[in-house]
Design a protein around this nucleic acid. Sequence first.
DNA 1: AAAAATTTTTAGGCATGACTAAAAATATAA
DNA 2: TTATATTTTTAGTCATGCCTAAAAATTTTT
Lengths: 219, 219
Amino acid sequence: MENPISSAVEDYLKAIFELGEKDIKTQDLADSLKFSPASVTGMLKKLSKLNLVSYKKYYGVSLTKQGRLMALETIRHHRLIETYLMQALGYEWHEVHDEADRLEHVISENFEERIAKLLGNPSYDPHGDPIPCKDGIMPQLLGQPLIDFAVGTNIKLTRITKQDSEVLIYLAENELKPGGVFTIEARAPFNGPLTLNKGKKPIPLSYQLAKAIYAQAAI
Amino acid sequence: MENPISSAVEDYLKAIFELGEKDIKTQDLADSLKFSPASVTGMLKKLSKLNLVSYKKYYGVSLTKQGRLMALETIRHHRLIETYLMQALGYEWHEVHDEADRLEHVISENFEERIAKLLGNPSYDPHGDPIPCKDGIMPQLLGQPLIDFAVGTNIKLTRITKQDSEVLIYLAENELKPGGVFTIEARAPFNGPLTLNKGKKPIPLSYQLAKAIYAQAAI
DNA sequence: AAAAATTTTTAGGCATGACTAAAAATATAA
DNA sequence: TTATATTTTTAGTCATGCCTAAAAATTTTT
């Protein structure tokens, strides 16, 4: 009767959470999970029956309070694990995501607590993503997209919202990670690339990429 | 066509390996895995088709070379993880087994290598069980069962072949773990209990338990 | 060696969770 | 507003891997 939650369910809840507050469309979920829309519909019915999701046919889904909490727990696992892999096991930035995607479903409360404590209960992971607290409270998102800053501004990076290996390797090579301080050197018109500088050589970033990198104004 | 190996398959291979060299009976496997004999038969047919096992109906199973290597890899994962959990995360002895049983199926080669290196490529886990090398070579088993030693002998514990929480808690409380040095103080006749001593108070061990604890003669 | 007991296998089911193809609903265009 | 296009759902499959009940093979007893 009281079945344990499967990783499939956890993946759906996480994906719904990450698609936002509004009513999520079947298609968007299917794209995000790389499943067929038909499969998604099937699972949504199941999640609905489990009261993890509120689902209106042809209209969209959103998480119930319970489903949201469950999504947050998985995300907490994921982000703690990513932090731990880098901090304690010397993983590179681009290596952590896939590993965390598997581990997040199997670690115990015990494991979670131990690594959280060891890391000093961090509020942000190595990408600058907030790590939800155990009570489901999410630390605030820090910063705004790079493209929102004027040329000449000094900024401190807060968050990188990309996880493609190639991008992360490029960024890591240029020390573009949360905490890094740079100046916005230039910005080409018509959604052209943006150039950062740290005193060394300038670092060009495509418009798309600059939209995915968040920062705060710095001294 | 080329499917990834499931954890179910890994569990079967591990169980077969741990039941020994000889032809393993369906019933023994079923008991060990806590599945019905019918389910075991079904899976054995599948493993046979995958060339992981050589299976003769009504007779028994044993691992093929390939299956053995796969079993050893899972066991290596398990034992490295147990070692890591205690050494790096401060787990208690009795907490590691279940956690390792879940993690062993999902960690990457990368993870395995990193924790192995961090631990200094250990050859034995916290229970004294040998950790297979990556090439499938198993370090030798150390020691003999406690009941093989004469009263008065000084012994060094090498291996505890039990994983019941309660037993492990009892043993840990009395510092009975691999490396511990004791004297065999007494042994009751007719397969009665055995008493160890370390200068403090004597530690009684049931015959059954004493059979499951291995040691070497010490100074 | 035949009968009885035990073990193992076969047969048939079920839950999970993916898929494709076709039907139905909704949204867009004419 | 009707026709067309798109999205979503339904219907039906399939693989995995467990289960129980019954049949078949093997082992033990008499």
